[in-house]
Each structure stands twice: as C-alpha cells, then as structure tokens.
Design a protein around this nucleic acid. Structure first.
Lengths: 209, 209, 209, 209
DNA sequence: AATGAATGAGGGTTCATTCAT
DNA sequence: TATGAATGAACCCTCATTCAT
C-alpha cells in the first residue's frame, strides 16, 4: 500500500532535518572538502542516493546548512531597530546574542569559517553572504542614525561605524574557531570590544552597566 | 664542469621565490583546492616535477606561502613593545601597518581566509597559527601592561584586551576578503575601531587625532 | 524499489569473481607493476572506480588473487596426514596435485614468482606466506613422523626433510615460470625429484613404481 | 690540468665497482621497483647524473649486478665436469659451494628473487638467465652422462635429472630469502636433498659420507 | 521514497632520465 | 668526469553524482 501524500511530506521534512543536522556536524568536523556525502549519509544511516533526493548537490546542502543559521540571525537582528529598546539596550542585546552563540552554538564556529572560505569561490554563496551583511549592517546603521539624531552619539561616519559590530563578532568567531577557548574568551572579548566601541561613540561618558 | 655551489644556491633561491610568488597569486585566484600544482608550475613556465624539488607537497607550499607573510608580520610587531615610541604611537603604527597591508597586500586577503579554514583541519598549521597569535598577543600585552603601570590605561583585564587588535584586524581582513572594497573600507574601519578601543582604554578622555 | 539484499549479494559475488579472474590474467601477462588497474577494469568492461568498490587497492587485489590460490592448496594438503592413504600414496598425491597445477594453472606461475618477490617488501604478504609454509610443512612433518614411527622411513631430521617437497615444488615452479616448457618438464622433474627423495627416505629399497 | 687517460680509467673502474656494490645492497633492501637511482647514488655520495655515466639505465645497472654474480657461478660450475674429481666429489663440491653461498652471500638472496621476477618481463634478462641455466644444466648433464656410462648411475633420463640440482638450489634460495633462517636451514636442506637425489641415482647403495 | 552498484573525470605525486654548466 | 636542476609521462585513487531496480 503506497504512502499517503501527508505521510510522504512528513517523511521529507524529517529526513531533511536529519540530513541538515548530520551535515552541519560532519562539515564542522571535516570541513567542506574533507566531508564526503557518504559520511553524512552514513551518519544517519541512509544511502548516498537518498541524499540526492533531498539536496541536488553537496554545494546545495552546504549552503542549506548555512542558510538555516543565517535566517535565524537575520530574523533577530532585523527587529532590533524597530524594537522599543533604548540604544543602549539594543547594543546589550547584540552582546547577549553573541554570548549565547559562543556558548551554545560552538560546533557551528568551524562551519562558519569554512563558509567564509567557501564564499570566496562560490558567487552564489558570496551573494548570499553579501545580502546577509547588508541587512545586518543596515540594522546597525538605523541604530546609529537614531542615536546620532538624538544626540546620544557623536556624528561619526555611519558607513564606517556600522560595520564595527560585525567586524568584532566575526573576528572573535574566527579566532575562537581556530584557537579554542584555551586561548580565547569570546564572550568577554566581544563584550569588552563592543563596550569600548559603544562608549567611544557616546557624546557623554557613561559607566558601562 | 658542474655549476658552483654558489650558482646552485642562487638558482634555488630564485626559483623558490618564483614559486612562492606564483603560488600566492594562484592560491589567491583559485583557492587552495581550486589551484592545481600544474597551474602554479605553468605560471612560471616550469614542469610540475620541478615544483616537487622545492616543496614536498601542495600543502607544504601553501604553508610556505603563509609563512613568508607570518614572519614579516611577526618581525614588525615583536619590536613594538621595545621601541621608543609612546603608547599612542605604537597603536598608530599598528594602524599604519594594517593600512599598508590592506592597500598593498590585497591579493593575500583570500589566501588568509583559506588559511584560517585550513588550520581547522591541519594540526601543523594550527600550531603555527597559535604560535603566531601568542606572539602577537604578547606584544599587545606588553604595551598594555606598560600603559596601565604608567597610569595611562584603565586597569582592564590584559588577557581580554590584548586580543582586541587582532580581533579587529582579522575581522576586517575577513570581511574585506569576502565583500571587497565596495562594501568595506578596511583602512578607515580598522582605524576607527582601534581608535575607539584605544580611547576607551585611556584614563583621561582625549579627542581622537 | 531497491534491489533486494540477495540480489546485491549476488552482484557482489559475481563481480568479485570477475575481477579476481581478470586480475589473475592481467597480473600474469603484465606483472604486478606492469598491470594497471585500468587494464583489469577494461578486461571486464567496468570503470576503474568499480574496482575500488571491491578491493581497496591494487595491493589488496594482488594479495586476494594469491589468497584464492593459497586457500585451495592449503585445503588439500592439510587433509593429507589425516587421510586413509598410505604414506606412499600420500606422496603420490602430492605429485599428482603438482602435475595438475603445472598443467592447468600454468598462467599462475609468473604471478607466483612476482608474489615471492612481493613478499620481500610487504610484511603482510610475508606473514601470509609464512603461515602458508608452516601449514604445508606441518603436513609433511606429520607424514614423516608417522612413517618414521612405523619404521618405514629412516630416522631423518624431520625439521629438515619436511621442507623438501616444498623446496622441490617451488624450485620447479620458479624455473618453469621463467624458462617455459621448452626448457623444463615440470611434471616429470617434480615426479623424479620427489621419487628420489622418497625412496631415499625409505628403510628398504623399493623399485620406483 | 686534465687527468691522464690512466687516471680516468682507474676512476671509472673504482666508481663502477662502488656503484655495483651500492646497487646490490639497495636492490637487496628495496627491491628493483622500490630502489631509486637516487638511493644508490646517495649511498656512495655521487649525483644522480653520475650514475648515467656508468650505466645507461636502471635496468642495465640491475642486470650488471646480477651479471657479476652469474659469471662467478658459471666459472666455477663449468669447470666441474672437466675436473679430476670423482662424480661423488663433484656433487659434494656443489654442496659446499651452495653452503658457502648461503652463509656468505646472504644479502644476495633477495636480489636473486627480484631478478627472477624481473626476467618474466624483460626478454634480455630472460635470455641471460636461460643461457645461465643451460650452461649449468649442461655441466650436470656431463657429470650424469659420465656417471651413467661408468655404471655408477642408473640410466635415468638425463634431461630430467640434470635439472634437479638447480631446482633444489633455487628452491632453497627462494624459501630462505622469503622466510629467513628461522624457518629454513638452507645448508642442511640443500645437503639432504642433494644426498637423497644423489644416492637415489646410484646403482649401488652407499652410505653418505 | 530508497538503495547501492557503477561511473569517470580529475590531480597529486614519483622518478628515471636528460642536459646545461 | 661530475653535478643537480629540470623534465614529463605515467598511474593510483577519490568521490560527487547517476541510474537501474
């Protein structure tokens, strides 16, 4: 007896999730080039052929893994400027998000580094990253703009300054992925960097909370 | 009559340089995995076999390319703490070095990103990077230590703060490599980030220069 | 609908046999180093890649070819001491086996010679050959032991004498592989050598049968 | 000042000897395919190029190594039939030669095995080996012929029987090369095999000396 | 939907040999 | 005579992807 359409749909969803999770793990451990489709297939006990019923290619799978992550981040950060939070609290929220990322998403760190290298050779990935960056930067621009207009911030070059949070986050991510927590204290370093930047932008000196 | 030892040495030096330069360029254009040994060989008009008289493997060549760069940076940064410069000027110097890197070593940017991904899978590369990081960080620790003792800097956690210049530099490098100069202004962003961090560390507020 | 496990098993068995046979032939014709994996693949009309679904490497395939042969021989010779045959007939049986080998397994002769050279550099092959030798020698030791205890054989040093059949067989195999049947009469030479040895071991002189 | 012709000649002879000895050793250790020309060159501290001033190719060098050995053996064995020794003593002499070979020329054993494998693919080597075999066999034929005519030996098929000493020697050589002296007693096994064969050929029984 | 046998292009690496000095 | 830099053909093996069942 053939499966119902609903059953098939559920199978597809479950499998897709399984593959994405296994892929994320294997890519983290082996890197994009080191990971074999058969490794990922084996990790969830399906055949290689099955992989291609869910993702057209290794590249597509890799991008899908990253996409899951990108979408999550984008959803959060895009809401920042529109939220009721004060400028101060917006920056704090970014720090908290970063901290939770460094604490709970640790296995994603190497995948991100692989992804960055990957974007250098894959125009589609590069475009996707660019879009991601622009969205993120726009959020910070909006915050800065509001802060400057309100007289809270010095009139710095928004174009320049709005990249700083991402620069810091990516810098910490990168070094933490490579060096590990024996050499990096990502939460503290992110917080200090963001604080110094934030305070430096303020027109009046405030004590960090 | 065979070539003299001096002649042979010169040939080897010249060839080694040629290969390193060609490799840097090809790795920058094609990436580590995209680059073929034959591409590099062809770029300088030698056979593939010749490559292996100078470097045992593609991996070794890649690491050698990076090593040239690492050594240059290390040499400069290690001298910073011992120089006669004031703390302020030391930080300025870092900025100038970064600026010159972003302006003249642009082709190395993607190679660095690949290298970072590479260190995740290659223990030797990881060790080498770790050593590089520690040396660099130590220089900044020394500067900070001196500044704090002189009362110029707030008594921040040196362990945390000493990583910030590298975090910023690597963050800017990463984003510039991926996004290009249409989306990044590496010189300005590095300068602003360093300034804000620097000023934030000062006990007395000064106007940015 | 995927193939059943039984179907897959049969495919694997058939292919494995095909490859082993083709390999034996190509190794015989071209030698271990002269044979290319692609030659063997072509001989049965499969791709090179398929070869590696069945054997991990050229070395493993070569050893597998020899193993098929070793196992056949071992199975026969190990039964010799326990059989109901008289000592005389056991020796005769060895001769008949040798004869059938020289007549039907002619193509394996050069492969054996290559294998012997191969064992010199490959510890695994050496161990396997050693095991094979010990098993074979043990059979002859048992026969000799029984013969000496029964008073049929002179009390020769069993350790020494038990190697003679193998020495003769391998000596004939070697020379026949190299010189061919224009210069060697392997069946007759094996028989004569074994007869002389056998008779020499007897306590009473008998006419050769 | 250029060297004199005499000096050059001496250099050539010395170097040739050095290379032959180094080659014998390296071929013994690594096998024909495992040995690199550079290994041999390095063993005596000359460049790779120098090798080709003395031997046209790796193959030629390998054959030259074997030729040295073949010539020595041939010289001895060819004299056997014409010597004043009795048939008994001729056989004994063969044994003594074999014994001294197994005791002093041990490092040549693997080279011989390599050589045998080599003859399978190299017509020139095969021809050389055939010639060697025929010469050796002829010596034994002569001895047998004389023995039969003198009534000392049974009228066996000379063609068949004359190969037995070589079969035994090569069989023992082969197994000793592969198994080593933990598993083989080449001197004793050769002696016993030759004795049994020899006695079996005698018309009258004699006690081995 | 799932399987796994099969494909085949692709590239790193080795090493005997050559040749300019 | 000697050197060693350079050559370049050769081949094993990998692995993403396809396809018959």
């Amino acid at each position: 007896m053939p499966r119902t359409a609903a059953q098939n749909k559920e199978i597809r969803q479950t499998r897709t999730q399984q593959i994405l999770e296994a892929a994320r793990q294997v890519f983290a451990e082996q890197g994009f080039y080191g990971a074999r489709m058969s490794d990922i297939a084996q990790a969830i006990g399906v055949s290689q052929g099955t992989m291609y019923h869910y993702f057209r290619s290794k590249d597509e799978l890799f991008l899908a893994v990253l996409n899951v992550w990108n979408e999550q981040i984008k959803a959060i950060v895009q809401q920042l400027p529109n939220s009721d939070l004060s400028t101060v609290d917006k920056f704090w929220l970014v720090n908290q998000l970063a901290a939770s990322f460094f604490e709970t998403g640790e296995d994603l760190l190497p995948v991100l580094v692989e992804y960055w290298a990957y974007t250098l050779r894959n125009p589609e990935a590069a475009a996707s990253f660019r879009e991601f960056f622009i969205l993120m930067q726009q959020s910070f621009k909006d915050i800065l703009q509001a802060g400057i207009e309100a007289g809270e911030f010095k009139p710095v070059d928004i174009e320049i300054a709005s990249a700083l949070p991402l620069i810091i986050l990516d810098g910490v991510t990168l070094l933490t992925a490579i060096l590990g927590k024996d050499f990096m204290q990502p939460v503290e370093q992110t917080r200090l960097a963001q604080e110094l930047v934030f305070e430096g932008l303020l027109t009046k000196m405030e004590e960090p909370v």
